[in-house]
């Protein structure tokens, strides 16, 4: 599903923000990604979201080496990836319903199907009464739920979420984690970037953590005991 081989990344002529990343995420796996601020978490997510190309090394997504992809192939690849941005990146002039419907409209799905699926999903994330509301009128948690709904509406094969439960109350956070689990059960590979130790403790999924721009792996238990010892 996702293979990184000696991947490095730098912005322009700057220093490498990611070094020698090697990882293999199997199809249908669920991972947490964590690490201190500035360790390269966002850069790794950008590589996974096909927002940037690696500066070196090989990145293989869905069986295709990314550097060999034609530009015209990128949209169909990106439609297999759902991204939840930390800052939501909703379009303020569109309603919640229109924001969530956007990936389907871009993929030229049938309007009737769009209406049905989007309404169903917004109801599920508890925004059935806010469908016509625009993002500036929504709270942080509500915006985040709209962003999550937009990321999962296409039933992506890979879901990347950057601090998806950061702006919501614990109950809604758990509800959305259950949504991610449901998608994962259907075969979606999930990577969740988080600083929330409670979330790692509760769900016990394997952890990838970044330290000094390099990536390390641990089970949830290993990571938690390391965290308790040294506060990684």
């Amino acid at each position: 599903m996702v293979i990184f081989e000696n991947v490095g990344m730098r912005y322009g002529m700057g220093p490498e923000v990611l070094r020698d990343i090697n990882m293999h995420l199997a199809s249908g796996s669920f991972h947490f990604l964590t690490g201190p601020t500035g360790a390269g978490k966002s850069s790794l997510l950008k590589l996974l979201a096909l927002s940037h190309r690696p500066s070196r090394g090989l990145l293989t997504l869905f069986g295709q080496e990314v550097s060999r992809l034609e530009r015209s192939d990128l949209p169909s690849f990106r439609r297999k990836i759902g991204v939840v941005f930390q800052d939501f990146r909703l379009l303020d002039h569109l309603s919640a319903l229109e924001n969530v419907a956007l990936p389907l409209r871009i993929a030229e799905a049938d309007e009737e199907l769009i209406e049905k699926n989007v309404t169903e999903l917004l109801n599920w994330v508890g925004l059935g009464h806010q469908m016509q509301a625009r993002p500036p009128t929504l709270s942080g948690g509500e915006k985040q739920r709209v962003a999550i709904a937009r990321a999962v509406i296409n039933r992506p094969q890979l879901l990347i979420a950057d601090e998806p439960t950061g702006s919501m109350d614990p109950e809604m956070g758990l509800r959305l984690m259950h949504l991610f689990q449901e998608l994962n059960k259907l075969g979606t590979t999930v990577v969740i970037a988080t600083h929330d130790i409670g979330l790692i403790q509760k769900f016990q999924y394997p952890v990838m953590y970044l330290r000094s721009n390099t990536l390390h792996f641990a089970t949830a238990q290993e990571y938690l005991s390391q965290y308790k010892r040294s506060g990684v």
Binding site: A49, L50, S51, R71, S72, L74, P75, S76, R78, R79, I81, V83, R89, L91, L102, P103, I106, A107, R150, N154
Partner: peptide, 16 residues
């Protein structure tokens, strides 16, 4: 640029 980036990441083609 920001909206263009979002559109790209949710699968919009350049021609769109």
């Amino acid at each position: 640029q920001e909206i263009i980036e979002v559109l790209h990441l949710i699968g919009a083609k350049d021609s769109y």
